[in-house]
Design a protein around this nucleic acid. Structure first.
Lengths: 348, 348
DNA sequence: CTGTTAGCGCTTTCAG
DNA sequence: CTGAAAGCGCTAACAG
């Protein structure tokens, strides 16, 4: 029914082994033979059987990319960059790798499930993106899984995610702590002393680091923190909207709101506007990530730009062995403070 | 080295076949035996070899989702919905399917490449999302490829994409034409007579249908079209920004701008603001899709809401055979006009 | 309900 | 440079 390597061999009048060799291009084959085989492949419209090939060779051309939320451009941008490096410079389907993105939805169980599925497929590489869940048992489970993947020859790269203990996974992280600190310092420099903070989900490394940066800035300027000023939520606009309402219910005198990321900040802006507060005259707002829509918000959003594309591209290259790992297996990229219209001097 | 099914069988004191049966759960096995096997699996930390399994069974548990732009929430939202249906109701890793999203970047070649890669993997199903490129040779190539996939037992579903000729692929489409028409009629009803249109890339079905709807509305109200009023671009904000500048350079008297989608509309808003035009007092703006950020724009965006999540979920279920295909293999979902702050009565 | 027996389609030594 | 042969690890009849 379906055409196999043997069919191609028969038509090209060579042995199956030879066909395999020209297809994989990893072995010397006479030019005329190669050509004959290639023509047979075309004539028969032959497509390699991936599973059979993977079974025999004990590796596959699958590369998995795990993201927490595929509907969030933060991950989309990284995934896109990773994928384009992995898939190589275009070219014929022969040399391609199947870069696939898996959406964990931020769930530890699904993360583990996907890792198992990829392990099952004998994936060539796996790239995990974004913040990790900090729950100790889960962390241990992930590390164990990664170790097993590595033992099986799968290359593991972490992108925008802290290193995994006891593995040799390469980690490309973002300096969320430093970025958070710089952002809050900017606000403090403007004169703000009463700052609300909308944090991401608890037990997320990204959440913790950004919050730590914020607190470091506060502490560095002798500003005592009021526990009412911090609220946890999800990384979406809805969460920002609700958290902002809550923040001002608790303390109407806040002059600034720092959000866990840009989506949250956008939600915060909506809530402020609806409650009749002007931005930045009454309240300043700051986000994080500098996603594409942030510059178009009105007023445009003060935020911290993260090199999402660059990090993704690098992670992709490392995963493919086309770039050397950074010294120590870990590299940290700094964010860049983008001061825009949403932050200003507080009303006096 | 790596533990195989035979190892598990030995430890559980059963035959390999029995182990396979409990793992696949598609065959009666005595409860006590099953338990013994499961324990052995745990003890040995056994992970099924996907390729071997796929080879023997002649199918895999891979499900491919093709998107034009993974960094665009339009696709992210659909992909997320598809993926959650495909991955089933959580549960143990045993029954899972590996739903993976492949980013074509809108390139016909990459689309074909991914299809081949998926064919190679003997994917269980493939879902293609979003508008198709209308170039005839490419269309034919895609159809041929889809036919081949179907012959090999891969279920093909189209989501937000017109039917593929000569295939039995199920198509869940959006009524882009109707939505576009309704949107422009809304503007006309408000009193607009000079409307600029920022279309998506040429040769894209989505682009063509939305534009046709726009033109139908114009024609239906006896408004003659000026060729200067239409500009083509990409589906991103940058494109909307530039196109808007171009539109007003050509005809400064326009009172409304209709954009190919929300991202484009946001870019249009930015351009209008920077050129000193107020929205909607001076110029009304309308988008398409109703992505999450659209309601937060200032003013909030008048647009057409598409049931992205619902369509994705349905496509996922159909792909998994958990829902019957619509009669005739094709179903069309209507968009819903969302009238918001960015559209108003034109200045007189 | 369970074991035996053949392959699935490809890669890879090992000889020519 | 090319062919022959031996599996890779699992599933699926087919008998018990």
């Amino acid at each position: 029914m379906t055409v196999t390597l043997a069919d191609v061999a028969a038509r090209a009048q060579v042995s199956p082994a030879t066909v395999s060799r020209v297809l994989n291009g990893n072995y010397p084959v006479a030019a005329t033979t190669r050509e004959r085989v290639l023509r047979a492949v075309d004539d028969l419209d032959y497509v390699l059987n991936g599973p059979a090939s993977a079974l025999a060779a004990a590796t596959s051309d699958l590369v998995g990319i795990l993201v927490n939320d595929i509907a969030d451009p933060f991950f989309g941008i990284m995934a896109s960059a990773i994928q384009s490096e992995v898939s190589g410079p275009g070219g014929r389907a022969g040399g391609e790798r199947l870069a696939v993105v898996c959406n964990t939805g931020g769930s530890p169980e699904r993360e583990l499930t996907y890792l198992t599925l990829l392990q099952r497929q004998r994936a060539a590489a796996v790239v995990l993106t974004g913040g990790a869940v900090e729950n100790p048992p889960h962390l241990a489970a992930v590390s164990a899984k990664l170790r097993r993947l590595e033992e099986a020859g799968t290359k593991v790269v972490l992108c925008g995610r802290p290193p995994a203990p006891d593995t040799s996974a390469i980690a490309l992280t973002f300096d969320n702590r430093g970025g958070g600190q710089e952002l809050t310092e900017h606000l403090i420099g403007l004169g703000h002393r009463r700052l609300g903070y909308i944090a991401g989900p608890e037990e997320r490394t990204t959440t913790r680091h950004r919050l730590e940066g914020h607190r470091a800035a506060l502490a560095g300027h002798g500003i005592a923190e009021d526990p009412r000023w911090t609220v946890h939520g999800r990384y979406d606009r809805r969460s920002g909207y609700e958290a902002t309402l809550e923040l001002f219910r608790r303390d109407p005198s806040l002059t600034a709101v720092v959000a866990a990321n840009d989506s949250v900040a956008i939600g915060a802006c909506a809530a402020l506007r609806e409650s009749g507060r002007r931005i930045p005259e009454d309240v300043s707002v700051a986000g994080f990530d500098d996603l594409p829509f942030s510059v178009d918000a009105v007023p445009s959003l003060t935020t911290v730009r993260l090199p999402l594309s660059e990090a993704g591209a690098r992670a992709g290259r490392i995963a493919m062995g086309r770039e050397e790992a950074p010294p120590g297996g870990i590299a940290t990229a700094r964010g860049e403070l983008m001061v825009r219209g949403s932050s200003g001097v507080p009303r006096s």
